[in-house]
Design a binder for these strands. Structure first.
Lengths: 156, 156
DNA sequence: GTTATATACGACAAAAAAGATCGTATATGA
DNA sequence: TCATATACGATCTTTTTTGTCGTATATAAC
């Protein structure tokens, strides 16, 4: 139920890899694929989406690749998953696009609980920045710079 | 990635249904199945697990059924999912039982982020009581009785 | 200009997970 | 003793996820 989606995994792998490089240095998908053993095509697709959404900047041609184009402290885990997987919906009936009409409309007694869970999960994901995930040292809140007090916390 | 497991759905449906009854009154799986259109066998299995874990009490024979046997305010969402699905693990490598040996051991660069995410998700689920989920009026913390201040909060 | 290397993207195939069902055993109230 | 309920192992089906193939396009290096 809680398993991390592969697309998100590949995104994290790529972002962590790029974060360690000097600003401006590019990373090709081939490099990621060879270093971490991730499938080229699948990872490629993920980086494309991230580039299209402005998280990465892509450079084509020989010696091309990707680089981080946005402050990851201001990118929430929610933003990331939404880009790659669409809206967070713990049940199909909460996803207007995919909802083919729930067969137990009218008799369902847990719409309220399910909605509550979805809302709480959304809040949780929105409050978790990708930067914090990649660098557990600092607990940062997306859309806000980390305070000194937060910077100091120890890892794990 | 975030879709609610059916087993958990059936559990919530059953628990919400039973919560509305007078103490001591039984609910048969047939009743649940007919009322909400959930598959009998699948729902039955869920109730059995819940009974085995002490959340429900089962009564066999004619006019038998299930009733709630435990304070749902002291049952966390984490407890519920663990009973039905096993330990929360956002990646296979975090689930000792199911881990068949990750092929990118040694090269993986996101074990730390994945572990962090798993820990945070666990905290989130542990801090969310089933009672709160079923009755959004009151925000209750599992393992602790709700305070008056918390009782007062309005729904949604 | 040509070539090597990279991204871009639609369509399809394979694998894995989730979900539903079947069959049978057991308990018990009417 | 029969109707109705839970208990539970095994298996089949469906859905979802994941990976692959083929082709087009962009561009730096030569």
């Amino acid at each position: 139920m809680n398993k991390l989606n592969r697309k998100v995994e590949y995104a994290l792998i790529g972002l962590k890899h790029m974060r360690a490089k000097t600003p401006g240095e590019l990373t090709s998908v081939k490099e990621l694929s060879q270093t971490y053993g991730v499938p080229f095509e699948a990872a490629s697709r993920v980086m494309q989406v991230l580039a299209q959404k402005g998280v990465l900047r892509s450079e084509q041609g020989a010696h091309g690749g990707y680089m981080i184009a946005r402050d990851l402290a201001r990118l929430s885990f929610h933003d990331l998953t939404e880009m790659l997987l669409g809206p967070v919906a713990v049940a199909r009936c909460l996803d207007e696009e995919k909802d083919a009409g729930c067969e137990m409309r009218g008799t369902c007694n847990i719409i309220s609980p399910v909605t509550t869970l979805n809302r709480r999960l959304l809040e949780f994901y929105k409050g978790l920045s990708v930067a914090e995930l990649l660098e557990p040292r600092a607990r940062q809140t997306p859309q806000a710079a980390p305070t000194l007090e937060q910077e100091v916390r120890t890892e794990l």
